[in-house]
Simulated assay, not measured.
Amino acid sequence: MTRTSGVFWNTVGVTYAGTGVQGSALNQLSTPTGIFIDSSDILYINDGGNYRSLKYLPGSTSGILVAGTGVSGSALNQLGLSTRFNYVDSNQNIYISDGSNSRIVRWANGASTGVKVAGAGTSGTSLNQTRTPYGVWVDSSSNVFVSEYTNHRVTRWSPGGTVGVIVAGGNGQVPFLLVGATSDRLSAPSGMFYDETMQDLYIVNAISNIVVKWRVGASNGTVLAGVAGSSGSSSTYLDFPVDLTLDQWNNIYVADRQNLRIQLFCNGSLTGITIAGLGTSGTSLVVPYSVALDSKLNLYVSDNGAARIIKFSKL
């Protein structure tokens, strides 16, 4: 067991989705990437190697196809070679970061095709384009936030808009020699979480090995986890983190990819606690890619290299 702030998790996980063997049947996954759990505890999975998105109803042993055809492509009913993260709104509309197609697509609940809501579909640095989109979040006004991994920025796209507005970063990548000393830039922003009430973006910076909090429109961010410009495996370090989520107390859960673990940083602490993966006596992770919590604070991890989603139960 791992305990923190009165909460316990079982460090021995169970396979919640997928079989652990790469495959294309509806009970299998292939290199899963982003996961999202909605308010009804329905799990949505970007099944990257199968060019599709699945949803798993609570307790189900098989997924339901909700986006994509299973064949890579750029048509609006298809997903490309590198889907990243996802977001599901209160109406179960699905937003998918379709990286190789340089766009965010929205699949209305039950639709057989998507609608482009961010990006021109061509990679670039102009504000009508995205380049390697990773994270996606949607606020209550249907504004779409996109973290652009190789543009080192987060852009906001208004409903129906064709041009994004930079709301974090946008000053280029952190220079290598200054990677630990520059707070006005992002470095390979990946997964993100948006606190709409406070207008704060929580952004994973994969290359600089940190999580930052960035007020929308501010000129600088604040490091909340990791040591900028340094990687390591001790409790204060991260190594190529890729995703995060927050709970209702603003504790931060990080998919610490190269360290093969999930780190919890309690609100206000720069010292992490390993709650799943390497460093515990529980279930090993192969390539932890995405992390999510359900309504009971059970922890779910997209284990990209093991073709499964693992659930670590809160005790």
Rank of each mutant, 00 (worst) to 15 (best):
G13W: 04
N91I: 06
A17H: 03
G268N: 09
I262F: 06
R3L: 13
G18R: 06
L127R: 10
S208Y: 05
V146G: 04
G268S: 06
S313G: 10
D41N: 15
N93L: 02
S158T: 15
S39D: 04
Q258W: 15
F8E: 15
S281L: 13
L43Y: 00
G80L: 11
Y16G: 10
G305I: 01
W107S: 00
A218L: 01
L224C: 04
T182R: 15
G232R: 11
N151M: 07
G191N: 10
I37L: 10
A255V: 08
L285M: 05
A25T: 12
S235Y: 11
I207T: 10
I104F: 03
L201V: 11
G48K: 06
Q129V: 09
N267T: 13
V88A: 02
T222S: 12
T113S: 13
G68F: 10
Y237Q: 15
S187W: 14
L76E: 11
A307L: 07
L246C: 06
G282I: 00
V7L: 13
V144I: 13
V146H: 07
V291P: 03
G172W: 01
D139L: 04
W107E: 00
L244R: 12
S102D: 05
N128T: 15
L76P: 01
F193Q: 11
G63H: 01
G229D: 01
A228M: 03
T280R: 04
Y56M: 15
T150A: 08
P189K: 14
A168K: 01
L201K: 08
N251G: 02
G99A: 14
V291N: 08
N205Q: 14
R3G: 00
T4V: 14
A118D: 07
L57D: 14
L65N: 13
L177K: 01
L299R: 13
V254P: 03
A218S: 14
V136T: 02
R215G: 02
V163F: 05
A225S: 04
N46Y: 06
F176W: 04
D200W: 07
N10Q: 11
N128Y: 09
L79W: 04
V14G: 05
G99P: 00
D239S: 14
D243F: 13
W107Y: 11
R84Q: 14
G277N: 03
V154T: 09
F265I: 11
P32S: 04
S290C: 05
L127Q: 09
G20A: 13
A206M: 08
N250H: 11
M192S: 07
S60D: 09
N10W: 07
G272P: 02
D41S: 10
Q199E: 08
G6D: 07
D247L: 05
K296R: 12
R52Q: 12
D41H: 01
R156P: 04
Q258I: 06
Y149C: 02
S233F: 11
N109R: 13
G221N: 07
L297C: 06
N151S: 14
